[in-house]
Nucleic acid binder design. Structure first.
Lengths: 191, 191
DNA sequence: TAATTGACTAAATGAGTAATTCGGTCATTT
DNA sequence: AAATGACCGAATTACTCATTTAGTCAATTA
């Protein structure tokens, strides 16, 4: 069988997006890295954005897989959410592509990138929401609005992992888990 | 007594910063609005940034005053924090200057504005921290790290008031209070 | 003849630069 | 002594034009 040109293109584009970002990646460059004529790219993808989208979709799948693997059905809901969310946010910190895109979103506000970041956040929120709905059904947690709860959990994590670090010493993974438990799962009150 | 030129300048600058932002406000413009020679501004303020700073300092005082007034010593800690924080964040939504600066920070990243926004956040966090320390001493809430707790409370509020609205129907004041109570003060857990 | 290619085009970009604007000063005026 | 605005160098902006880029399509290849 001949070489899988589509796969070559995806790999080349992923490499280039990770290295230079979306805007600074040219289709000529992708074609060259993939050892493929530029026209060939357009037989598989309608345009640059669609190529980008396909790459992001696999990224989202990878994230879900990583989160699922970090969970263990024997764990409490609280531990599950903590490990899953932490895994997803670690992903952001470790994978070149997500780092580059995060930076490009902030610094240049490239529209295609902004769009894709919203998609990414939606995927995380949807994933979380599923877990929350299941936990309510199983009676593991109180009745609550799953949408708002997913939103609060994600924001709290992002704040603790990314925002806190901007002005303070980073928090340890265990500290974050403890804070998460203390606030979301126990509450501060004395009564 | 002759007209208070310093006050005129402050008022003119506040108006212009509110209307056009920091960067787009020129000292000539401020002088013209204040009906004052440009040189006069420099007898009261070292430079444009110092003028800006003085305006922000009064803004912070105003915020503190508004928050204090919204609290009532007969209220529970939870109600106090909710009302105080809500007041402060309402302030942001209602006052032209804070709206403009918030926008300028995001869209243009003007250095002087970024600096001032950090100062503003620090003021809010410091204020919150004080209230938390007092509440721990009085036994109204559990032992906790006041810095982190203030940070979490502010982030949660900002998320619920500003970020949630970006993609969903705004939450009512009462809903926010309820969510705040449910998560920070009671916790989600069933155990 | 179906898949692949790269020269080509119109549109977008950005480097270079000329012109303008701005923050801050200070000699003059009030 | 206080206030002013013309003035200055630095910074920003507006503009131009050469280059680059996404996407097309006629020619080529297998």
């Amino acid at each position: 069988m001949a070489i899988d040109r589509k796969q070559l293109i995806i790999e080349a584009a992923t490499k280039s997006f990770s290295l230079f970002g979306f805007k600074a990646t040219t289709m000529d460059q992708v074609a060259k890295i993939a050892n493929v004529g530029k026209g060939t790219i357009y037989t598989f993808f309608k345009n640059k954005e669609e190529l980008f989208d396909e790459i992001i979709s696999s990224l989202i799948s990878e994230m879900k897989k990583a989160a699922d693997e970090a969970m263990d059905s024997s764990l409490s809901f609280h531990e599950k959410v903590h490990r899953g969310l932490y895994q997803i946010l670690e992903f952001r910190l470790k994978h070149q592509l997500t780092i580059k895109l995060f930076q490009e979103e902030k610094e240049m506000g490239t529209p295609a990138v902004m769009e894709v970041m919203i998609k990414l956040e939606d995927a995380i929120l949807g994933y979380l929401k599923e877990k929350i709905v299941a936990a309510i059904e199983k009676g593991e947690i109180q009745e609550c609005n799953p949408e708002v709860t997913a939103f609060i959990m994600l924001k709290l994590y992002v704040a603790l992992i990314f925002d806190w670090e901007k002005r303070n010493e980073p928090l340890e993974k265990e500290e974050i888990a403890k804070l998460f438990e203390q606030y979301i799962f126990k509450g501060l009150s004395n009564r």
